[in-house]
Design a protein around this nucleic acid. Sequence first.
DNA 1: TACAATTTACCGAACGATCGGTAAAAATTT
DNA 2: AAATTTTTACCGATCGTTCGGTAAATTGTA
Lengths: 189, 189
Amino acid sequence: MAYAKVEHDVVIDKLMEVFRSSGYDGASMATLAQATQLKKASLYHRFPQGKEEMAHAVLRYVATWAKSRIADVPVVSDSTPEDRLDTALKAIDELYDGGRLDCILRALSHGSAANLFQKEIGAIFETLIRSFKHLALEFGHNEQQAQQLANELMVKIQGTLIVQRSLGQPSMFKAMLAEMSAKFMKTHF
Amino acid sequence: MAYAKVEHDVVIDKLMEVFRSSGYDGASMATLAQATQLKKASLYHRFPQGKEEMAHAVLRYVATWAKSRIADVPVVSDSTPEDRLDTALKAIDELYDGGRLDCILRALSHGSAANLFQKEIGAIFETLIRSFKHLALEFGHNEQQAQQLANELMVKIQGTLIVQRSLGQPSMFKAMLAEMSAKFMKTHF
DNA sequence: TACAATTTACCGAACGATCGGTAAAAATTT
DNA sequence: AAATTTTTACCGATCGTTCGGTAAATTGTA
């Protein structure tokens, strides 16, 4: 029988899709195999440590995503702070598909995964917060204000994803991003 | 052998404890039985529809909790709006043990439970939002401001629980409640 | 270039353990 | 004794995981 050849990037993407929508406990090997088009045994060839290693691989990808799409934005300069904030928030909006998709970091933070990936997830959150704090500083906010704005953004991203889903109001996420964008740009002197 | 007699309220409390910390998929019948001190078959006697019925029972309890501890606070009058807000937020703080405990509503919103309890969970959120909006109105905020404050509070409760855990900063939740309390009380004329 | 040796990638089948769920016996209450 | 509740004992299905083996790609050798 001809068998499937699947690119590593595609496998990671499909694994992330299952983990984020089903959570760590809800993602069964059978589901992960079906999603990746690989048989269970083939997944174990690529990830000898099984499900846990798959989740680690996904988080490694998310960490690089965060660095390239959020943290390194200021480096690609020749742009205004407004442009850079807009680019970063557009990346966030894309990551969550306008709030329709769950957060992979949250999905891997609960249940039996609660203590498995804590460090990596915390590091990614810190990267994101540091990046947005840096952006806030560029707008002229002081140290404390910048830190507070970055924290508030992360909290509202997570919170809005949950509340929006429970209330069935798919407009909340984009509205919240717009509101936070305005808050970043409005500096009080 | 003498067998266990466990009060209904205690069973519900233990079931909630497991669901909120393990999620719906992560909460196995074996775990639920161990936590309630009842054998699996005894749980099926009390909840013939199994895990799903147990979760429904827990949510029914949460709904009554929300009504008695949050929604009906204004009814027990002879108190200032400040007192009533403080009482409501203290109930929230207690429910989440200062941010150390997970949210049962969120825990039952994901994985294979995503579509099972949507309506009930949405209704509870709406009850809470309506209650806090009512409180905001008492402080003199206008319709739009009150709605916005209530929404913001719910979003920040959910978001802070997640971010606080991931960052390992157990002080965020209480700080956030205090900040929101101040925001409710500060009316702009 | 041709061919053999080795490594890499994938798969079907099965493992023990645990899953959610059930039937019938034993214990308790009324 | 009748009814209710908890228990023991068990079921088929699925869990994550492993094993034995095959197909394809790569490397080494002539």
